[in-house]
Design a protein around this nucleic acid. Structure first.
Lengths: 150, 150
DNA sequence: TGGATAGCCGAGCGGATTGCTCGGAATTGC
DNA sequence: GCAATTCCGAGCAATCCGCTCGGCTATCCA
């Protein structure tokens, strides 16, 4: 029951991009340093994000990545689904699939309704949070952090 | 973002035990055959379930396992936590842990609030479903299945 | 009393997944 | 043309998953 580093690092990087939205392309190296991640690993994740057009890339010197849409238009769910695949706790709960055979039970798996309810609840959360609101949270938190100066 | 076979098989087996609650101990072999699982694998899971006293064991011939409490008193969350560990999507969201260092960010991980909200929503679901209600669902479904007889 | 039926326990193991790294191309700004 | 970047594919060590196996112990029943 874990989100892998793909989803976690990817979301961190996307939030970073959201913080810098409208300031031109940001190179991966900058994101990686700022968040303490490996840039060669981030490369992989951004390949997927680009194919899903959640980010746009600018090649060459002074290039980098920027969000493909405004931060309000990108949800956490969008990012996680691209990087992690379907957000279902079990095969048989993936939306659109009516695959009962996976459960080992020839007729119906008694636990399936649990996985479906779990999936719905997970999707409700991640689809209701977008990058803009994450940014706002982050800015408020670092604002509180200012108390520790002086 | 997956529940492993430990959690899934374990929940299936526990639901089976709930269906037979009050009828004396059920051997693992019976559960395994009925659910189409491997009994030597189930053994491992039941070792953990027993230590958590979610099941009680009776050794020797005519022995087996039975629920440690009535089905209404055992939630899906109880079973999953024993078999899968903490139901958090990330280390930094485990209840009681205030471990920000895992996120790679020296100060605060911007994504943490997402993982915490996810965890809360997951726990709300699994803690609100108990084995008794799962049994009832199953009985209703197999009731509909009776249409296929004759 | 002895055999059959169970749980109990620990070790092991092949395959898949994770979390990277590396090298080298292609593209572009200066 | 050179430096900065994205792009792409391969590879790889470590870990985890999903089991299996062998042998022990406890208990019932004939």
């Amino acid at each position: 029951m874990n989100i892998s580093t793909r989803g976690r690092y990817g979301l961190m990087a996307m939030t970073e991009l959201a913080m810098r939205y409208g300031q031109g392309p940001v190179p991966l190296k900058t994101i990686a340093e700022s968040q303490g991640l490996s840039d060669s690993y981030l490369e992989q994740l951004f390949a997927a994000l680009r194919k899903a057009s959640l980010v746009r890339s600018v090649r060459g010197a002074q290039g980098g990545y920027e969000l493909g849409k405004p931060p309000e238009a990108i949800s956490v769910g969008d990012v996680l689904r691209v990087l992690e695949g379907p957000l279902a706790p079990a095969e048989c709960a993936i939306e659109g699939k009516d695959d009962f055979t996976h459960c080992g039970n020839p007729d119906r798996c008694m636990a399936r309704s649990v996985w479906v309810r779990l999936r719905e609840s997970i999707e409700k959360v991640v689809d209701s949070i977008n990058l803009a609101s994450l940014c706002e949270e982050a800015r408020n938190q670092s604002g509180q952090g200012l108390m520790y100066y002086i």
